[in-house]
Nucleic acid binder design. Structure first.
Lengths: 220, 220
DNA sequence: TATTGTGAAATGCTTCACAGCC
DNA sequence: GGCTGTGAAGCATTTCACAATA
C-alpha cells in the first residue's frame, strides 16, 4: 500500500525488537496483538509502532490487530533472516568471543559459527562450542577456502585492524566489529561498525540517580 | 557562549567517541586537531562535529582547531567521568560477565567492579579479576551494605527481571542490562536499557554484500 | 589562510488525529 | 467499539554556507 517511503535506520532497529517480542508472544500462545501491546512492552508510542509496521507493508486488521505468526514471519523475511543460514568466522576467543559463541540469539537468527581463530597458542587446536580454534595466521586462507561470508572481530583494539584486513583478504562480505576502535576498509569494501565500547560509554552518562528517597554515590 | 540549546541524546553518544579519539591522539602526541580530523576518523561531517562541540561550550580556536589536552579534559568533565570512581556490582559471571570484568575501558572511565554474583555453586567463592563471586541470593543484601550505586546485569534473559528487582531492593541508582529482554522497574525507579541483543540484530540487516567483485553467500 | 561557531534551510523522525474498516 | 493506516503537523537533528576570528 506504500509507494516510496522507507523505514528509517532507527526504525529497522525497532523491527528487531518487534521480532523479539513476537517470538515471546508466540511461545506464550498469543495469536493476535495490537500496536498498544507492542507500545507497552517496548516503551514506545502505539503510533510509532503502527507507522513502523505500516511502512513495511500491510500486516494488520482494522479493529483487530496483528496476527502474531504472520507478522513474525513477515518481519523475519523483511529483515532477511528467514530460511537462511549464514556461516560466521570469529576472530578472538577470549571472554568476549566466548560470550558470542555461546549466545543463543545467534543460532535463532540463522547464524552459525563455522570458524574460530586466536593468537594464543594454548587455545589453538581446542574445540569451543563445537568449533575448532585455528591460528589467526591462517584466517584469510581458511575463510576464503570455506567461503565464509561474515567475520566477527572480538580481539583487543590494537589487533583489530590487522584482523579486519585478513577478513577482507579472505573475501568476506560483512564484518562486525566488537573492538573499541574504528576500522577502515581497503578499496571499496564497506564496513559497518558495531561498537561495544559505545555501549559502555552510554553507561557513563545514563546513570539516573532517581531512587525514591536516597541517592548514594560513592568513591572508592 | 550559548543560551538554552542542549546537545541531543545522540550527540552525547558521539561525545564519547570524541573522547576515545582524543585519548588516542593524546597518546600519539598530537596537540591540536580540527573538526575535519574528527570527521575523517569517525565518519561524520565536520559541521556535525563543530555543532556538537560548540553546543557544549567554546573550545576551539578559529583558524587553528581544538587543543587536544584541553578538549579531552573538558569533555570528560561534561560527561561527568572525571576524577570520580564508581563502584559497580556485576550479576552473572558467565562468558559475557567475564568479558565485562576484563574490559579495560571500564577502569579507564573510573568504574570499578566491587561485587560479583552468580547462581552457579561451582563459581561461588572463586575470585575473578580480583573480585570474589558471591551467591546471587545475597545480592540485595551485599549491594545495599556496600552501598554500590551501579548494577550490571549479565545473566540469561529469564533471570534478568529477578536480578533487576534484587538490585532495586539493594537500592542501586543505576542498572545496565545486557540481557536480551526488556526490564521493568518497580515504583518510580528509572532504568536505561543497554541491550546486547540489539547489537546482534544489527548484524542481520547490516550485511553489506559489496565486495569489489564477488559476493558469496552460503547456506550451510 | 585555515578553521571555528552559528543562523537559516533542509532533512528526518515522531506524534496527532481521524477516516475507514472489521 | 476497537484498531489500523496515514495525511498533516510538530519537533528534532543535520547540513549548508558564511561572517568572524586567530
Amino acid at each position: 500500500m506504500k509507494g516510496t517511503k522507507r523505514l528509517p535506520e532507527v526504525g529497522v532497529r525497532r523491527l528487531s525488537l518487534y521480532v523479539r517480542e513476537l517470538h515471546r508472544w508466540q511461545r506464550e500462545g498469543r495469536t493476535v496483538i495490537s500496536s498498544t501491546d507492542f507500545a507497552d512492552a517496548l516503551h514506545l508510542s502505539s503510533a510509532q509502532v503502527r507507522r513502523d509496521l505500516s511502512t513495511c507493508g500491510q500486516f494488520g486488521t482494522s479493529g483487530r490487530g496483528y496476527e502474531v505468526r504472520r507478522l513474525h514471519a513477515s518481519l523475519l523475511r523483511i529483515l532477511g533472516i528467514a530460511d537462511r543460514t549464514w556461516a560466521v568466522a570469529l576472530a578472538g576467543v577470549g571472554n568476549l568471543g566466548s560470550a558470542l559463541l555461546a549466545y543463543r540469539g545467534f543460532q535463532e537468527r540463522g547464524f552459525l559459527f563455522r570458524l574460530a581463530f586466536d593468537a594464543d597458542r594454548t587455545k589453538i587446536g581446542r574445540t569451543l562450542y563445537g568449533v575448532r580454534v585455528e591460528s589467526v595466521e591462517r584466517l584469510a586462507e581458511l575463510v576464503q577456502r570455506e567461503a565464509v561470508p561474515i567475520g566477527v572481530i572480538a580481539v583487543p583494539a590494537p589487533q583489530a585492524q590487522r584482523v579486519c584486513d585478513a577478513f577482507v583478504a579472505g573475501r568476506v562480505s560483512g564484518i562486525v566489529n566488537f573492538a573499541p576502535t574504528r576500522l577502515t576498509a581497503p578499496r571499496g569494501v564497506q564496513l559497518r561498525h558495531v561498537d561495544l565500547s559505545l555501549e559502555f560509554e552510554q553507561l557513563t552518562y545514563h546513570l539516573s540517580l532517581e531512587h525514591p528517597q536516597a541517592a548514594h554515590a560513592q568513591r572508592s
